[in-house]
Design a protein around this nucleic acid. Structure first.
Length: 925
RNA sequence: GGGCCCAUAGCUCAGUCGGCUAGAGCGCACGGCUGAUAACCGUGAGGUCGGUGGUUCGAAUCCACCUGGGCCCA
């Protein structure tokens, strides 16, 4: 049949596969990029261009990457690639956070308790390094598989000597500026294992404890109570009697009502709500609440009692003070909390606020020293019964019982741990105005999305001093010394310089294997006692401090980078973490923020918006997605999400993303298939193109500028949206569909077909570049299937730059307006054709001719296009435009006149050869 | 418990200073085509804009509270 004519048609030809098979094909692109060293080349092409530095926040070198890390890295990658396309010199140096408790903990678990006992710190550190390096390797491969481009040959690692030297440099500067001080802070301590424990090493379980109610005698009771009885006490409740020797304050709830209860001839002050419960525990047969002249209970708010003093229970010759705090519970106890800043986190924080001392009478072994007064020499394990009976003897114990509650235990020995204040190193927020300077620096930075600035501001405004020391093995030491003779800290420009040099050449390991005399200059002595024997500080630095100094260890240290960076980009948790530690160390050392813009994204959650967890069974791993769908699907998903909120992944979302991908891929395939015989020399200039092609060029130009704006504005989901809608709506559903007749049936070398191909080539070369930052693999694949001349001798799409497209603006505006009308009419025509199809009047639209009745304004626009052009655009055999009686738009569908041309399948009057005039003409040649 | 934030069709997103019957694409249903064919085209059905109350002539949009969710802290 018509197949005879098939050979005379210009049907699409391309080897570009319809099916992506990304999981198997992507590795080929990876090898290609490796071969041509695309990262290096991406810098070379923009040598001398403006610089854009996205500074990578280091993930922790432990375990495989998850969806969150994948999202974050791909997000960064598409920004770097976009900037590269726009001509920016944009190096990307990935980094890893290699020190810290989780790795040390894991290594310790692998070793087991027996070997741990015999291993040296140096050996332990070597094992930790090995462990970290293994996962740096694992994650680097996983990132590369996602298409992430960067200097994976030479990433930055917090365990490298050059990095560790930067830790010293920043610490030294902060120290010189007087921001670093030594103070005390309570930490979890296991006296059996003789070690500090991190929060992650604590296991909580139920524990039965003593529960006692103790009277603290007020020295100057409020008159309302003191008139009633001679002795007035504030009644506290505690489950840790052994912490009473360290008591310095009682904390009340500022807004709660407190009353005096008269029982056994004494007034006991407690929260009104808790009086009945206390009466029951105390076993009072009768009691009364102190009342005023009107018979109303005397109520005082916690804040009114603030400032009163009382005699310490264990040291009656000293006094404590009543304060208020937010952590006071009014569901149990008395509403008055025994406060020992040396023994509790909340107590410590409230103590800092009130400037209270933090006595710590318990030593490393858990034994009271002389600070324990009458209990000196007693072990805390044995102390409770002794203290309780002592309190009873003193007449201050109201009641004693037992209670069960959740209590922290050591992960190693499984025994209860204690909270114990120890010497720690701090960075002061206020001594030298760091807080104010940081807040000021926040104002110089662009925070995206906008609410981000509120979050960082309130966190910096409210945070306590930064405790930067850890009692650990795997990290960078606090680079100071202690005088062996008098305990004074020894640290000055000379020692810092020597330590920095030591770390730079041998790494921080040397701190643990070399004696200070080997690397410190001669003559360093204790400024207080003149002692010359110096002991290196045992504590290491908080890992947040380490990663925080990357502005120095990486941005400053590496030739291709500089401080400040244009962009930091991390999840919203980093307001507390890296954004802040980077900001504080940079402002502290250099008086300025290390970044110009900070971009924050939400967290990855499941389809219901819940976080992913093993227990919920909703975890999706990037490796599985790459295996099933391919990295480009992860990349497309990354771009499609509005990162300002939490980002969902589910199998449905991935399925949808994958369908969208196929749509884009097929658009590329169609474009490639129709330019197989096109040479750029045959391009038709804009002003000689048919109007429809001019419109297509206009809409492409609009897309180019819209995408540029969306990318520049960090609105990547709009980029995705615009590309996708363009492929579906502008191209597939309209322009490309309309073009088929011209492409397939017109003479191969005709101006009309060459014009169409000119447009398709423009679309292809522009789209492939604009999509490359996102669909990095597919774009590269498309690039390799493009006709050689269109590639302009460029190996990789990633080196091809951003498209430039000029369309006369007056003509563009004219066409945009006119085609708005045409497309509206087209919609109506489609509806009418569908009705006809449903009535079995027609099958394909060419079988119909239509009569469009419209108002004058519409008719004039249509008339300008011409009936033939309208028929082509509506894909019908003929269009007739007629006035409409009421001005409304309506469409009448009639059978096509003429017969089906066996070559082009349009309904036309057929000539002698049995073909339509156009086809007859084409075949004749 | 506190701070910051989120909530529009099954999915991903639009909805400017509050103002026509809340939009798009996908998916779905139905149909067409068989020269983009494990493609392509068309039509259609889907939403009490998380809930309640308030401000207003009028609220998806402003306010309060609640519910659910996220991050951080406690």
């Amino acid at each position: 049949m018509g197949n005879d004519y098939k050979q005379t048609m210009n049907l699409p030809q391309t080897d570009f596969p319809m099916r992506a098979s990304l999981a198997t094909r992507e590795p080929e692109q990876l090898r290609f990029w490796e071969e041509i060293d695309v990262y290096r080349r991406s810098l070379e092409v923009n040598e001398g261009g403006p610089t854009f530095i996205l500074h990578d926040g280091p993930p922790y070198a432990n375990g495989h990457i998850h969806m969150g890390t994948a999202f974050n890295k791909v997000f960064k990658d598409l920004i770097v690639k976009y900037k590269t396309m726009r001509g920016y010199w944009s190096p990307y140096v990935p980094g890893w956070d290699c020190h810290g408790q989780p790795i040390e903990h894991q290594v310790e678990k692998n070793l087991g308790p027996e070997r741990m006992k015999t291993i040296s710190q140096a050996e332990l550190r070597a094992l930790c390094r090995e462990y970290a390096m293994e996962f740096v390797g694992v994650q680097a491969e996983e990132f590369k598989r996602l298409g992430v481009r960067g200097d994976f040959e030479d990433p930055y690692l917090t365990l490298k000597p050059s990095y560790e030297a930067g830790d010293v440099r920043v610490f030294a500067e902060l120290y010189r500026r007087g921001m670093v001080y030594k103070g005390r802070k309570p930490i979890h301590w296991c006296y059996r294992c003789q070690t500090a424990l991190a929060e992650a090493e604590i296991e909580y379980s139920e524990e039965t404890s003593d529960s006692i109610y103790v009277k603290f005698w007020l020295t100057d009771p409020p008159p309302a109570f003191s008139g009633v009885a001679e002795k007035v006490a504030v009644l506290i409740w505690t489950t840790t009697p052994w912490t009473l020797p360290a008591n310095v304050a009682v904390t009340l709830a500022a807004d709660a009502a407190y009353v005096g209860v008269l029982a056994d001839g004494e007034v006991l002050v407690m929260a009104e709500d808790l009086v009945p419960a206390v009466a029951q525990v105390a076993g009072w047969d009768s009691y009364e609440v102190v009342r005023d002249a009107d018979g109303e209970p005397v109520r005082m708010r916690g804040s009114e009692l603030e400032g009163l003093t009382y005699r310490l229970p264990v040291f009656p010759e000293r006094t404590g003070v009543i304060i208020t705090g937010e952590h006071v519970e009014l569901s149990t106890g008395t509403g008055a909390v025994h406060t020992a800043p040396g023994h509790g986190e909340e107590d410590y924080l409230v103590g800092v606020r009130y400037g209270l001392p933090a006595p710590m009478p318990v030593d490393d072994q858990g034994v009271f020293d002389h600070g324990g007064g009458p209990f000196a020499g007693l072990h805390v394990d044995d102390a409770n019964p002794v203290i309780i009976s002592w309190l009873a003897e003193q007449g201050v114990l109201l009641a004693a019982g037992k209670t069960t509650h959740s209590y922290p235990h050591c992960w190693r020995c499984k025994k209860p741990v204690i909270f114990r204040a120890t010497e720690q190193w701090f960075i002061s927020m206020d001594k030298t105005g760091l807080r104010d300077a940081a807040l000021k620096a926040i104002g110089t930075v662009e925070w995206v999305p906008g609410w981000s600035v509120n979050r960082i501001t309130s966190m910096v405004a409210d945070r306590p001093d930064w405790c930067i020391s850890r009692q650990r093995a795997w990290g960078v030491p606090i680079p100071v010394f202690e005088c062996a003779a008098c305990g004074e800290t020894v640290a000055n420009d000379e020692t810092f310089a020597a330590v920095e040099a030591l770390f730079a050449t041998e790494g921080a390991d040397a701190w643990f294997t070399r004696a200070p005399s080997e690397y410190l200059p001669q003559g360093i002595a204790c400024p207080r006692c003149g002692g010359s024997e110096l002991v290196p500080e045992k504590d290491i630095v908080d890992v947040w401090f380490e990663s925080g100094v990357s502005h120095t260890s990486v941005l400053e240290a590496r030739d291709e980078l500089r401080r400040p960076a244009e962009l930091y980009l991390e999840g919203s948790d980093q307001h507390r973490g890296w954004f802040q530690s980077s900001l504080l160390t940079s402002v502290g050392a250099y008086d300025e923020a290390p970044f110009r813009t900070v971009l924050t994204h939400g967290f990855i959650v499941d389809g219901e918006g819940r976080k992913m967890s093993k227990s919920l069974g909703n975890v999706i791993s990037p490796a599985d997605v790459v295996g099933q769908y391919g990295a480009d699907i992860i990349r497309l998903w990354t771009a499609s999400a509005d990162y300002g909120q939490d980002i969902s992944v589910s199998s449905e979302i991935l399925e949808r993303t994958s369908e969208a991908y196929r749509r884009i891929r097929n658009t590329f395939r169609f474009l490639l298939g129709n330019i197989y015989d096109f040479e750029p020399g045959e391009a038709v200039p804009f002003d000689r193109m048919p109007e429809l092609d001019q419109w297509a060029m206009t809409s492409l130009a609009r897309l180019v500028s819209r995408l540029g704006a969306a990318y520049d504005d960090w609105k990547f989901h709009q980029v995705y949206r615009a590309i996708y809608d363009y492929c579906v709506t502008d191209l597939s559903a309209f322009y490309l569909d309309v073009l088929k007749d011209r492409l397939y049936a017109d003479e191969a070398d005709s101006d009309s077909r060459r014009s169409a191909q000119t447009v398709l080539a423009e679309m292809l070369t522009a789209l492939v570049r604009m999509v490359a930052p996102i669909l990095s693999f597919t774009a590269e694949e498309v690039w390799r299937f493009m006709p050689e001349p269109l590639r302009e001798g460029i190996d990789s799409v990633h080196l091809a730059g951003w498209p430039t497209l000029e369309v006369p603006s007056a003509r563009a505006a004219e066409l945009t307006a006119a085609y708005g009308v045409v497309l509206e009419v087209r919609d109506e025509v489609m509806k009418a054709l569908e009705d006809a199809r449903n009535a079995k009047a027609i099958g394909k639209s060419q079988e119909a001719r239509v009569v469009v009745k419209a108002a004058e304004e519409v008719r004039s626009v249509l008339a300008e296009r011409g009936a033939d052009e309208l028929a082509a655009m509506f894909i019908v055999s003929a269009v007739e435009v007629a006035p409409s009686a009421d001005g409304s738009l309506s469409v009448e569908v009639l059978p096509a006149a003429g017969e089906k041309c066996p070559r082009c399948w349009n309904y036309r009057a057929l000539g002698a050869a049995g073909l339509c005039a156009r086809c007859e003409d084409v075949v004749a040649r």
